[in-house]
């Protein structure tokens, strides 16, 4: 599904940007600022931050499946350390870590 122009590739360590812009966004609050890895590159999709405000969604944004260890996301996560949470995140929310 990758278009070959993706900035990140599977295995890359990333950090989710710690940002809080107004308007419609699809990056959950709990995952911002967290460090994980790119699991899959899903390809380009219309940008929901534009669509949500009646824009045309262009330019499209690269979408990634990003994995995180649960105990790196939640300080209180008491369960086995291998547990993971995966979130679909658009490229402009990611930076190298």
């Amino acid at each position: 599904m990758s278009t070959g122009i993706a900035k990140f590739k599977p295995g890359d360590r990333i950090r989710v940007r710690m940002d809080d812009p107004p308007g419609h966004i699809r990056t959950p609050y709990y995952i911002r600022g967290k460090v994980g890895w790119v699991e899959r590159v899903y390809g380009e999709f219309l940008n929901p931050e534009s669509l949500g405000h009646s824009g045309d969604g262009l330019p499209k944004k690269e979408l990634y499946l990003v994995g995180f260890y649960q105990n790196k996301v939640w300080e209180s996560y008491g369960a086995p350390s291998q547990d993971r949470v995966y979130v679909d995140i658009f490229e402009h929310w990611l930076e190298p870590a």
Binding site: R26, T27, P28, Y42, L63, L65, D83, Y86, D88, I89
Partner: peptide
């Protein structure tokens, strides 16, 4: 000893 993986569907998938 079983790993739990949660998927949060936040986009088009």
């Amino acid at each position: 000893d079983v790993e739990v993986r949660v998927h949060d569907s936040t986009a088009d998938m």
